[in-house]
Design a binder for these strands. Structure first.
Lengths: 211, 211
DNA sequence: TCAGAAGTTGACGCGGCGTCATGAATTGTT
DNA sequence: AACAATTCATGACGCCGCGTCAACTTCTGA
């Protein structure tokens, strides 16, 4: 059977390590959803598992770290999609609208993940910086810079542009989830129009700097 | 002396209550700055004070609540400024640029407060929802609606527009603080240009809705 | 078959949590 | 001025979660 196969390939030790880690993550997802992030303790998580309390610390330093792992799993699912969407883009309009639409679509469909998080009033917003998430931002900025180099769009401070896009994306996504009358389409159209319209007006890089 | 005066006016009881509350808030500001939000305990806060541990709970339910109070103090300082700036505005350009400039200016000058917060990696971002802060957002939206009614700007989904402005404001503010080469002026110009340029392109309210 | 490595276990000491009985200080009343 | 009532500060207390660590079990490679 497949478990034996894996055991052969990876060794039993590696196998149970992976299983334990995943068991903790899965338990955490459940418990966070039930109790809310702030209220859950490491003990709650480990209790929802077959493992002993000490074992938790072989895998994570704290509940924060488990949360990050959860977050990273999510980010790992979106990033490739966003990346693909941007690479496919033939012009700036597609670049922008594709990015926003993909993101909002993900947030909406993956509401299971996000709703879990959003129940917790303590974790105030969708927006959180986990290394994976930050890496995703960096990818966006890199792609923006490529687009500028290709002449697809004017040369603008890519860092600020990225910041603005990220801010709009997360904040609008929040409102989309809260309000029933805002569809993915509405949200994407809104964000896209804002940036397509605003782009030509943005201060060009190198120019206008009073240095 | 003035303390006697206050005591006469407010009663000694009220007086010490106000003092204790403020002492706790001040101690919290200090301790948060020193240890970071996540690492500080209620005990740490109360220890930085002359009061006994039980007294803390006469004023706040948890460290979260003290943090909110801190946050509210800050929001209470910005809101009137933003409000005044928007009321003074004679056209949409002034409305937008005044709002952003005031906000970024505040963040920069009040870095003491914000830097304190930003040291804490756990509180991921400037952006947090405390009742005062939310009230500030609502004010912005209300003012946007007034501006639309006055014909200063086209009728747009004010909720989404507010969300976008808030997102850009906080995210760009973050980058402004992190990067030494972005001045308040740069940040304000960038955000203003984005919205002034994007506004005409935004989907008009009532139109285009496929309902 | 066995020695060493790797990893699991749960009991332990420490410290923070929120409560509550006690007592001190302030206020209002006669 | 004396007193009763009210308000509030105090800090000890029981509870629980924290992270550690010595003992033990399981796996691995020779």
């Amino acid at each position: 059977m497949s478990i034996d196969l894996e055991a052969k390939l990876r060794g039993k030790r590696e196998e149970t390590k992976a299983n334990n880690r995943q068991a903790i993550i899965d338990a955490a997802r459940l418990v966070f959803a039930e109790l809310g992030y702030g209220a859950t303790t490491v003990r709650d998580i480990i209790r929802a598992t077959e493992l002993a309390s000490g074992t938790f610390y072989n895998y994570f330093k704290s509940k924060e770290e488990v949360y990050q792992a959860l977050r990273d799993e999510t980010a790992l699912r979106v990033r490739p999609r966003l990346r693909a969407e941007r690479i496919r883009a033939r012009n700036f309009e597609e670049f922008i609208s594709g990015s926003f639409r993909t993101f909002f679509d993900f947030v909406k469909n993956d509401q299971a993940t996000f709703a879990t998080m959003r129940r917790n009033q303590e974790l105030q917003h969708v927006r959180i910086d986990t290394p994976e998430v930050v890496a995703g931002f960096d990818e966006l900025r890199a792609d923006l810079e490529v687009a500028m180099a290709n002449g697809m769009m004017p040369a603008i401070d890519s860092d600020l542009l990225m910041a603005a896009m990220v801010g709009v994306a997360f904040e609008v996504a929040n409102h989309m989830l809260v309000r029933s009358d805002v569809s993915v389409d509405d949200a994407a159209r809104f964000a896209t129009a804002l940036f397509l319209g605003g782009l030509p007006a943005l201060p060009k890089k190198g120019a206008g700097k009073k240095r």
